[in-house]
Write a protein that binds this DNA or RNA. Structure first.
Length: 259
DNA sequence: CCTGAAACCTGTCTGC
DNA sequence: TGCAGACAGGTTTCAG
């Protein structure tokens, strides 16, 4: 199992001894007291992902984690010292622990008895059987700038700033293009590139762009993200950076023409 | 319905 | 060297 780009032991079958919440707001639900009481003694049955959420399935509840901007998870021996920004720690009975580290405190953890409703509002997984036809229909349903639309988790699940910029570049689509103006053929190409970029990201353990992330190799695959002013890998034009929906947005003006 | 801004946070980098 | 301001892999909420 990979955590934060490093190999870690599988936590399957491990039994929770106790938890500590070192920054209260990290625990979104429920309150610290009932969380501590209820999770103690539970076994880990499975670990899954839905959109950007990590799901740790326990016997009669589940722990849901969102890393947001700066979150990271370690699984390690409880003999090691805790780190400066460890916000929530799950201690197992076998001498190991799971530490949720999060410098910027944006990450959240939920302990849910019933998680079905929790994921209700999320859009489809691009790697989970979404067809080109359905994707095109999705884009037609809105009249929004394509980049913020792709990052809207209610529309499509799992795309963040890096992957969206990269997919739009590979598909040759300007980030401000109206979603409803995207042809069926373009939508097909876009979905294909979204899938390619996500697969590559998973394969390379994500991007390690600044001090927060370690171990990933995806930064070596980037065509536009973080390449402002550099030559486009495809045509040699200068990569441009603009602001779209308050997010830094990188694209090639020649390969991704407006309109 | 769509867009943009502000808020939530800490750490790093840039420019004066 | 110091310090202010901008900026960062995300999401929610609110104003226009």
């Amino acid at each position: 199992m990979k955590f934060g780009g490093r190999d870690a032991p599988s936590i399957l079958g491990w039994s929770v001894e106790k938890v500590s919440v070192r920054w209260e707001k990290t625990l979104a639900e429920p309150d610290v007291d009932s969380f501590s009481k209820k999770i103690s003694g539970m076994l880990v049955e499975d670990v899954q992902r839905r959109a950007k959420f990590i799901r740790i399935i326990l016997c009669s509840a589940e722990l849901v984690i969102h890393l947001r901007m700066s979150g990271d998870i370690r699984v390690e021996s409880d003999a090691l010292p805790l780190q400066p920004h460890d916000r929530l720690v799950v201690w197992f009975t076998n001498g190991f622990r799971l530490a949720f580290n999060d410098t910027r405190k944006f990450g959240r953890v939920w302990f849910l008895k019933e998680a079905a409703n929790f994921f209700e509002g999320l859009g489809p997984e691009p790697l989970g059987g979404l067809t080109k036809n359905d994707f095109h229909t999705l884009l037609q349903r809105h009249h929004r700038q394509i980049k913020p639309l792709l990052m809207d988790q209610r529309v499509v699940a799992g795309l963040g700033n890096i992957y969206t910029d990269e997919a739009l570049f590979l598909a040759g689509i300007h980030p401000l293009k109206k979603s409803s103006a995207i042809s069926k053929k373009q939508a097909g190409k876009l979905l294909q590139e979204i899938q390619a970029v996500l697969r590559k990201g998973i394969e390379t353990n994500g991007a390690s762009i600044d001090w927060i992330y370690r171990g990933g190799q995806f930064q070596n695959e980037l065509h536009v993200y973080n390449r402002t002013g550099l030559a486009c890998h495809n045509c040699g034009a200068e990569i441009v950076k603009i602001k779209v929906g308050q997010r830094g947005t990188h694209f090639c003006p020649k390969c991704q023409p407006e309109g």
